[in-house]
Amino acid sequence: MKKIFLTLLLLVVCVSLGWASGMMKKKLPPYDYGSVTINNYSQQAGMPPVQFDHWLHRQYATCRLCHVDIGFGMTANSTKIRSTDNMKGYFCGTCHNGKESPVYQIKIFDSCAKEYKRDEYKRCTRCHILERSSAREDAFERFAQKMPRERLGNGINWEKAEEMGLVKPADQLEGVSIMKPKLKIQQDFSLKSKVEGMPDIIFSHKKHTVWNGCELCHPDIFVGIKKGTTKFSMVDIFEGKYCGVCHDKVAFPQSDCARCHNKSPQEK
């Protein structure tokens, strides 16, 4: 029995590797870009999997608040969120606690519960989503309509939206974050593209620190202690490492080459 299973597994893995090459990838529609399905325990416990949308939450919180202070991991399903965590006010329950939020001044619906009635089950299915409804797409359209456009990803230029004050993500939550002074800023620098004529990359340490905080990148994503010591190439990034941890999942995708490779070779 075990042997059959293993052979099957091997077969499936091999075939799936072969499938990956030479084809156009499925293009996610803008409302699905940055959507994460969290399903470590839900289905086993008889609940539909959880669908988490980054586009919806990016207007309320910085990456740093969620991924550093609240402690969500940077890959899908890595956090191993339990319903009890949520009920105790951790993870989703940090905000989704059924109380009026002092920061957002709205009542944010409660998260998981041990016991629930039929009418409360409706609330469960706002996160434990049975099937995609067009209501969510419409909500996205209505939101995106007001935002500065961008060609790829969510089709929203998040950086501009924040500059224009259209979204004001909170960076700290009382009782959760360490209320600390404004972040000290790191120097911006450019990264060489190593291919003659391919524009170099301007990487803004400053902007990224405001969005992400130092500890999200160092040393988990970037270990090198001196500029240039971590050798990473575009192939690594395409494989989802380094910059690719965020850029292709939540921040603008890699297909927008020119947004990173934007320093013309002449002005070196």
């Binding site: 060609r151 291919v195 003659e196 004529g197 391919m198 524009p199 080459c257 020119a258 947004r259 490779h261 934007n262 013309s264 070779p265």
Partner: peptide
Amino acid sequence: LPILPLPDKL
């Protein structure tokens, strides 16, 4: 929207 220049070697 920016359009990348084509690197010389290509």
